[in-house]
Computed example of a mutant assay.
Amino acid sequence: MMVTENKKTEALATSLPIIDITGYSTATPELEKELCSKIREACSDKGFFYIVGHGIDQSLISELLAQMQLFFGLPKNQKRAIDKSLSPNDRGYEAIKNQTLEEGTPPDLKEGFYLGAEYADDHPMVQAGRFGYGKNQWPSNSECFQKASNQYINEMTELATSLMSLLALSLNLPKNYFAAFNHEPAVTLRMLHYPPQPENPLPNEKGCGAHTDFGGLTLLLQDHNGGLQVWDRKQEYWIDAKPIKGSFIVNLGDMISRWTNDKYQSTLHRVINKSGKERYSMPFFFTGNPEHIVSCIPTCLDPNESPKYPPISVEQHMRNMYKKPMFDNKY
């Protein structure tokens, strides 16, 4: 859906909440209650918030950012050699202007590299052709890149799993409510490179078109150049989600909106790289177990309210999302 620009002045200051989750893994009931209250408020509003105190070491982040920049600096033919069109599970390189996330606009001004958790060919999920499972493609002589990427994916999976527990508590559910969803989850790490916005862009041309994410949780690492904007549906303007050192931005996907009967929100967002510099970011998509059934959570129904959506498996939900016009060539 194309978003019409509002004539109001766009927000210049960050107005997304910042939640310090230090000690979340061993939190006392009092701390859990405090964290869940903040998460509930954020998820009921825009479904976007920063987290700090997450425990992911900055040295790993710095190493991966450096390796990512080296990758995008490779000659085009080396990147094209591992194009994601060559992968049965959509892993690998995506060239600039190869995706259009906002219907009716020019192609996105970004290039990407898709990775996920490594699953061998004989793994049951791979054998069954499940959505998002399989092997990664790598450039040659990339042992350091592979090591840092795999470690980051493992640690981010653990972090996302913990956030799902806090999400459960925020919905007045048992802490382990999402345990089956979290089991052997499909995850995607998407490394992105945005060149500077052209001085004379095409109408509505931008780094990444306005869209909502499809799955469960997204945990975004930004560099220091900024560019992410989040739509404030109440005030009808774009909020600049400025980089905060040591933070991730967390946002909810459409599946969480569906699961909560729209009590928790997935929200439009986009990227316009106006920094005049190269921009790099890494969204980590936590999609969950493909066989898990997403059915309206009982605590999300008001008295006499009915579910808006029928039950659906995680995999079927994701496949339905990828049937949208801009994703005709996927899956």
Rank of each mutant, 00 (worst) to 15 (best):
N141S: 14
L221S: 11
R130I: 05
F131W: 05
A186S: 15
Q197H: 13
G134V: 04
G216D: 03
V126L: 04
D213G: 08
G116W: 12
P201F: 05
W138F: 11
R130T: 13
A186H: 12
K175P: 03
L221F: 14
A117H: 08
G134Q: 01
Q137L: 15
D122N: 10
Q222A: 02
H123W: 01
L159Q: 10
N176E: 04
P174T: 06
A180F: 04
F145G: 12
Q127M: 05
S142Q: 06
D122G: 00
N154G: 09
T218S: 11
E184C: 01
I153Q: 03
T157G: 03
Y119V: 02
H224P: 11
Y177S: 07
F178V: 07
G134P: 02
M156W: 09
C208F: 12
I153P: 01
K206S: 14
R190S: 03
W138G: 11
K206M: 15
N172Q: 12
P203T: 07
Q137D: 04
L220S: 07
G129H: 08
H123F: 00
Y177E: 10
E158W: 04
K206G: 13
G207K: 05
T212F: 03
A186R: 03
I153V: 13
M191L: 13
Y133L: 07
A148Q: 00
M191N: 08
V126K: 11
H183Q: 15
F181M: 02
D213M: 13
P195H: 05
L166D: 03
E184H: 02
N204S: 14
W138N: 12
K147G: 08
F181N: 00
M125I: 00
T212P: 05
K110P: 11
A148L: 00
